[in-house]
Simulated assay, not measured.
Amino acid sequence: MITAYVGLGANLGDLRRTLEAALADLADVKDLTLEAVSGAWRSAPVGCEGPDYLNAVARVRTALPPLTLLGALQAIELRHGRERPFVNAPRTLDLDLLLYGDETVALERLAVPHPRLHQRAFVLRPLLELDPTLSAPGLGALKSHLPGVDAQAIEREDEPLRRPHGPFGP
């Protein structure tokens, strides 16, 4: 079993409800256990226009290989109405495989660690909420990248994300 981290984000529709439903869908994926979920973080779009995003990060344990896990994430996105009309388009749901154990994956369809995770407050802050000592291949200690994202607008919401059986915990 591998520990992986999945970034969740949405900026169209009922953001909180979408993330909570996506987390429940993720928990239902065969050969995957949802271990923990960060708090919900509201952030301004980075590199594009549109409404604010609601973001979180989930820690999972899985026996799925990286491309199979990616396929499961994309299937969940599609169930929630994800469209890809252009790069950085607003979205009903975005699921990104951020880290897959200590492995590096460099394929046309998938790059792990996610190539911009250290440049995005909406990824770093929830990741570090789950594990303040987390490191990534080629990036080292992720907390060392926090000064580089300090200027990005982001705010943690007080209300935790919920699933049908109650709140997720870190």
Rank of each mutant, 00 (worst) to 15 (best):
A121Q: 03
T68V: 13
W41R: 11
S43Q: 06
P132R: 04
L117P: 00
T3D: 15
L107E: 11
A111Y: 08
S135G: 04
D96Y: 11
I76Y: 09
P160M: 04
L19C: 07
P51A: 13
R16M: 11
F122H: 03
T3A: 13
H80G: 06
L54A: 07
P115C: 02
R109I: 15
Q119Y: 00
A56W: 00
A40R: 05
E103A: 15
I2V: 05
T68F: 09
V123A: 11
C48P: 08
A106D: 08
P85M: 12
R61E: 10
D14W: 15
D158F: 13
Q152M: 04
T62S: 10
E129S: 11
L128V: 09
T104H: 01
Y100K: 14
Q152V: 01
A58C: 01
L127M: 05
T18V: 04
D102I: 03
H145Y: 00
V6Q: 04
P51R: 13
S43E: 05
R42V: 10
V149T: 02
G7V: 05
G148N: 13
L161M: 10
P65T: 14
W41H: 10
L70C: 06
D150H: 09
L26H: 11
E83V: 13
T104I: 15
P115D: 04
L161V: 04
F122L: 01
V46D: 01
L146E: 00
G9W: 09
G101I: 08
G166F: 08
C48L: 11
G169E: 15
R17F: 03
V105M: 09
E155W: 12
S135R: 07
G81I: 04
A75F: 05
L64E: 00
A27K: 09
Q152R: 02
A40F: 07
L54D: 08
A4R: 02
R17P: 11
G71H: 03
L107K: 15
A141S: 12
T68A: 12
G39A: 10
E103G: 14
V57I: 01
L110W: 02
V60E: 00
R109S: 15
A106F: 12
D96F: 03
N88Y: 10
T18N: 11
E157R: 14
G166S: 06
R116A: 01
A106N: 01
A89D: 09
H118R: 06
V149E: 07
T104L: 06
D102E: 14
L73A: 03
Y53T: 02
G7S: 04
L130I: 07
P51I: 04
S144G: 07
D94L: 03
L15M: 14
P126N: 03
P160G: 03
Y53G: 08
V149C: 05
S135W: 03
A21I: 12
L128W: 03
L95T: 10
H114F: 15
V37A: 02
P132L: 00
D28E: 07
L34T: 06
G169C: 13
L8W: 12
D31Y: 15
L26T: 12
A151N: 12
G50Y: 00
